[in-house]
Amino acid sequence: MEIKVMKRVLDRNRDMAARVRDRLGSSNVVMINMISSPGAGKTSLLEHICHLLGDKMRIAVIEGDVATDRDAQRIKKYEVPIVLINTDGGCHLDSNSIDIALGEFDLDNLDVVFVENVGNLVCPSHFDLGETLKLAVVSTTEGDDKPVKYPMLFKEARAVVLNKIDLMQYTNFDHSSFLSGLREVNSPVPLFEVSCRTGEGLEEFMEWVLEEAGN
């Protein structure tokens, strides 16, 4: 006996993401889902955001970490509300854990929630967290082929940060090949070329963050 089913997989995650979106919307909070491979510089970028924009908007952070609180410890000194989600080996965050984490914040007194997803370019792209937008972070030391190798993330990203541009000269990162790959996958997406180490390019990126946060 064959039974037609036609049911979507991961609908529960989608339903919960819709709930998260409603919660954020009713408190007028923007949520930015930061996705990158391990070591691209998500936490460093977040540190700069907290440092440079902490007095311009009310920030909270959700840290997704496989097993440690190292990233959360780095953010703690900026005195922003922070919730750590340990995935215990899991390769991505899901909307249910975000919904629980949001319960720890006073949403009506926030402007932006930054979610630092687990370092991974594949899995987090499949799980809608209820975010307002996805921010892809990539670095020159990873190679120039990431957009074409992981098109789903780069198609869905509202903006892309290319970090570690100060190291470009020491690597075989081909800037024009990176650009043409990114433009092939997502031609209009804004690209911010920065160095979290030297601070180069961060000003322009911060302006974009402020704009997206509605300030």
Binding site: M1, E2, V5, R8, S187, P188
Partner: peptide, 19 residues
């Protein structure tokens, strides 16, 4: 550059067979 994805974005269980 911003087309709508009308097909091929979902994963679903089409059918099962059993007794």
């Amino acid at each position: 550059p911003n087309p709508l994805i009308t097909k091929g974005k979902e994963m679903f269980v089409k059918s099962i067979e059993g007794d």
